[in-house]
């Protein structure tokens, strides 16, 4: 009932999944998608991020954008924890295909195989991609 809502958001909690499949810098999608994730934190929803395909390049460590004069936003992924966004998942097959391992990543993630990730992604209420 509407009268039960006040200034604090206390509506329904949905499972929001942000799917990152694109590399940073070549296109703007990774940067602007991260802005949506940060905003979503204010709504007290059940937020998860997955990194698959070229999306895994978003969280590779040692990014240095000085030479291309673009904003290095990779540190923001490490700040997500401070926004209570703590569910980050990476597909093992995507890492393997790109010659990457968990040691190459700049943030703590849970690594799942395709089957595990498939189950996780299927259990979401709202899937946002870009």
């Amino acid at each position: 009932m509407a009268e039960e809502f006040d200034d604090e958001f206390d509506g329904p909690v949905k499972r929001f999944l942000f799917v990152n499949r694109k590399a940073p810098y070549g296109t703007v999608y990774a940067l602007e998608s991260l802005e949506v994730v940060l905003i979503s934190a204010a709504f007290d929803q059940d937020v998860s991020l997955v990194f698959v395909d070229d999306g895994v390049f978003q969280i590779v460590k040692d990014q240095d954008t000085d030479g291309i004069n673009m904003k290095n936003f990779s540190r923001t992924y490490r700040a997500l924890e401070g926004y209570d966004v703590e569910k980050l998942y990476v597909e093992k097959e995507s890492l393997d295909a790109r010659g990457l391992t968990e040691d190459d990543l700049l943030v703590d993630v849970e690594i799942l195989d395709s089957q595990g990730l498939s189950d996780l992604m299927d259990a979401q209420d709202v899937v946002i991609t870009s």
């Binding site: 509506g11 329904p12 905003i39 204010a42 899937v127 870009s130």
Partner: peptide, 20 residues
């Protein structure tokens, strides 16, 4: 308006459909 409107749409709508 702000990005919060997108999250709100996700919460309030029965389905959110993305085109890109």
């Amino acid at each position: 308006s702000g990005l919060g409107q997108l999250i709100e749409a996700g919460i309030e709508a029965d389905r959110l459909v993305t085109f890109g």
